[in-house]
Computed example of a mutant assay.
Amino acid sequence: MQFSEIIAKTNEFLAEEFEIDITKITPQAVLKDTLELDSLDYIDLVVVIESNFNFKVQPEDFVNIVTFQDFYLYVETKVNAKELV
């Protein structure tokens, strides 16, 4: 999957799931603040990621994810690793 496809797909399902204006989702924006995530929302986020990209998410994976760019790179790494298997 191309990086641009990951960004487009991610932005689309995050905007829908978290009921946010898609224009607020930018690479430099802080994921937690933009989506107004609390601890339960992180569970929803994990479920949405797993269902849209078909890989398992570990809670500790979110330690280094601050911005949407970090999130895109994380998804790209997981998707590419899955495709190599």
Rank of each mutant, 00 (worst) to 15 (best):
M1R: 14
Q2A: 05
F3H: 14
F3K: 15
F3L: 15
F3S: 15
F3C: 13
S4H: 13
E5L: 14
I6C: 10
I7R: 10
I7D: 05
A8Q: 11
T10N: 01
T10H: 03
E12N: 13
E12P: 07
L14T: 03
E16T: 14
E16Y: 00
E16K: 02
F18V: 05
E19C: 00
E19Q: 06
E19G: 00
I20K: 06
I20N: 10
D21Q: 09
D21K: 08
I22G: 01
I22N: 11
T23S: 14
T23H: 11
K24M: 12
K24W: 15
K24P: 05
K24C: 13
K24T: 08
I25D: 02
I25V: 07
I25R: 04
P27K: 11
P27C: 12
P27Y: 05
Q28A: 05
Q28S: 10
Q28C: 01
Q28M: 09
L31C: 06
K32P: 03
K32H: 07
K32V: 08
K32Q: 13
D33K: 10
T34A: 07
T34Y: 01
E36Q: 09
L37F: 02
D38T: 03
D38K: 02
D38H: 06
S39R: 12
L40V: 12
D41C: 09
D41Q: 11
I43Y: 12
I43S: 15
D44T: 14
L45I: 06
L45W: 07
V46W: 09
V47W: 07
V48W: 04
I49G: 01
E50C: 10
N52K: 12
N52I: 09
F53P: 09
F53I: 02
N54Y: 02
F55M: 10
F55K: 10
F55W: 05
F55N: 07
K56Y: 12
K56P: 00
V57P: 05
P59V: 12
P59D: 15
E60R: 14
E60L: 14
F62E: 10
F62H: 14
F62K: 06
F62A: 11
F62V: 13
V63G: 05
V63K: 15
N64D: 10
I65M: 09
I65Y: 02
I65L: 12
V66C: 07
T67E: 08
F68Y: 08
F71L: 00
L73E: 14
Y74I: 01
Y74Q: 00
Y74K: 00
V75Y: 00
T77P: 03
K78F: 01
V79H: 02
V79Y: 02
V79R: 03
N80E: 14
N80V: 10
K82V: 03
L84G: 06
V85E: 13
V85F: 06
